[in-house]
Design a protein around this nucleic acid. Structure first.
Length: 260
DNA sequence: ATGGTAGAAGATCTA
C-alpha cells in the first residue's frame, strides 16, 4: 500500500511543527506540499529528512512554492509547467517527480481572483497547460497522480454554501469546465469517486469563523490516471490539522493505492 | 455585514 497526501500549508516555515507532527501521526508515503512561501534554502529540509523523507523543492520568494516528500528515492521529471506560447513562468506552481513506481505532480494552480483582472486569464492559461500535460502523460503507460490545490470548486456539492461562490474565480464556468475536461480525459477524482456524500471540504477561510461553522469548500484534489485509479482502495480528508492552533487554512487530502 | 484573517515583506500584496 502507498499513501499519498496533498496539503497546502500556507507557509512551510510557519507550519513546520504542524507538518512534522502530522507526518508522524498520519505516516504518508508521499506528500505534495503547496504554498511554501519561501525559497528552497529556507525550507526546513533537515527536519523533514530526519522524519524519514526525501525532499524535492521548487521554491519562490514570498509566494507560491511546491514540494514533494517521499519515503522512497525520487527523480525529478519536470520543474514548472510551460506550454505553447508560454516559455517562461516566474511562479513556482508545478513539480513533477517519479517515486515509488509512480509519477506524481505537486500542483498549486492560480487562485484567479478578481475575475475582471489579468489574474483570471492567467488561471485559465495555467489550466490549459495542465490539461496539455495530462494529455501527454496519458499516452505513457505510467500510473500517475496530478494533485494539489487546484483552486477549483468542481460542483455545488463541494461547497457548504455554493451561492456564496457565484462570481468567484474558483467557481466560474470556465474553471469548472476545465475540471470536467480533466475527468472526461479519463482522470479519476480520487475522493469523489469513493465518497458521493456532501460535506467533504479541504479549505475553510480564516475569516468569519468559517472553520467553526464548517463553512468550507473542496478545492484540493487528487486526479488519478486509469492505471492509478485501478489501484485506488481508499481516499479522504484529514481534518485534524485544521483544528490546531495557528493552522493552515487548508487541510490534507489523501488517497491510498494498492501495491502493483 | 463590501468587512473579516493570515503570512511575508516591509509600510502592501496575495489569498
Amino acid at each position: 500500500m502507498v499513501k499519498i497526501a496533498t496539503w497546502n500549508v500556507n507557509s512551510v516555515r510557519a507550519r513546520t511543527q504542524h507538518l512534522l507532527q502530522w507526518l508522524g501521526d498520519f505516516k504518508p508515503d508521499i506528500v505534495l506540499l503547496q504554498e511554501l512561501k519561501c525559497v528552497e534554502e529556507q525550507f526546513p529540509r533537515e527536519q523533514v529528512e530526519d522524519a524519514g523523507y526525501n525532499v524535492e523543492i521548487l521554491g519562490q520568494k514570498t509566494y507560491n512554492g511546491v514540494a514533494v516528500l517521499s519515503k522512497s528515492p525520487m527523480e525529478v521529471e519536470q520543474r514548472g509547467l510551460l506550454g505553447p506560447g508560454f516559455d517562461e513562468d516566474t511562479h513556482a506552481r508545478y513539480l513533477e517527480v517519479f517515486t515509488a513506481g509512480l509519477r506524481v505532480a505537486s500542483i498549486y494552480a492560480p487562485n484567479g481572483n478578481p475575475v475582471d483582472t489579468e489574474k483570471f486569464p492567467y488561471k485559465l492559461n495555467f489550466q490549459e497547460r495542465l490539461y496539455a500535460r495530462a494529455k501527454e502523460l496519458l499516452q505513457t503507460e505510467d500510473a500517475f497522480i496530478l494533485a494539489g490545490d487546484y483552486n477549483i470548486i468542481p460542483e455545488p456539492i463541494d461547497a457548504m454554501n455554493p451561492a456564496a461562490w457565484v462570481g468567484d474565480a474558483l467557481y466560474q464556468p470556465e474553471t469548472r469546465g476545465f475540471y470536467r475536461k480533466m475527468r472526461y480525459l479519463g482522470l479519476t477524482d480520487a475522493i469523489r469517486s469513493l465518497h458521493p456524500e456532501h460535506g467533504i471540504f479541504t479549505f475553510w477561510d480564516y475569516q468569519a469563523g468559517a472553520w467553526q461553522r464548517d463553512n468550507g469548500i473542496r478545492i484540493d484534489h487528487l486526479l488519478l490516471s486509469p492505471q492509478a485509479a485501478d489501484r485506488l482502495v481508499a481516499a479522504g480528508v484529514d481534518r485534524t490539522p485544521r483544528g490546531w492552533e495557528k493552522a493552515s487554512d487548508h487541510t490534507p487530502a489523501w488517497c491510498e493505492l494498492s501495491d502493483n
